[in-house]
Amino acid sequence: MERSDRSIEVELIVHAIHLKYGYDFRDYSRAAIQRRLLLRLQKEGLANLAELQHRIIHQPEFFARILTDFSINVTEMFRDPEFYQGLKGQVFPELARRRHLKVWHAGCGSGEEVFSLAILFMEAGLYQRTQFYATDINREVLARARRGEIPFKDLRKYSANYLAVGGEQSLADYLDISHGEATIRPDLLANILFSDHNLVHDQVFGEMDLILCRNVLIYFNRNLQNRVLDLFRESLTPGGYLCLGMKESLYFADPGNDLVEVVPAVSIYQRKP
């Protein structure tokens, strides 16, 4: 099928970003990239993609907006409660047998899911022996994550999710709430190291007991998905666990891989011990 002019323009922008800023979105889902560019175009009131491309190339501060548009920031605390139930029920008992734990949350965005993990690790008595690494390509959202901020408007939903996971307290017990602002308690932030890491070209993050990367691969094409899965596999200690998004369960095309699905419906895998 012949490509539309629009899809050619989108491709040119993706290449321009790579050449100018070094961020490589060439293996991202083109449909999602195009949609986000068009939304930005509308928001800025620009006439066409050529004008958008011009601003991206000539105004680094404008590109920062595009980078935020492209980074996958849709996240929530205890997203998909059934996933966290599976983690608690079938992975925690195994983790409890290990003396030190390393956890990597790749694509952490503003941190809601790594905060959720920290809370559950605390409740399971695992938190004190765990180092969490939370990474994202977007420094701006990482800065918010470091401050532990939770948008006030989302608290009701997060509380409901927490209870659906079988939470033992009230979510508010883990937050400091004052002046209409909510932040994660400092002791829950203390073991989390936030840093900037790009799954497309950065290296292995070694010896992890648990890697969480949910609804990130969904935006990658097959080629990049497989490369990132290799990166995860190499970053896992034998017996380590990999948690993907609910619709990311079918990507193990590579026959040599030693990842076994341990909690099927919620996409939790284990590297063979």
Partner: peptide, 16 residues
């Protein structure tokens, strides 16, 4: 999940 069509005639899902 949103459902989209890619220009390579693949389906794409999104959580936007």
């Amino acid at each position: 999940y949103h459902l989209l069509v890619d220009d390579t005639l693949h389906l794409a899902l999104a959580v936007d």
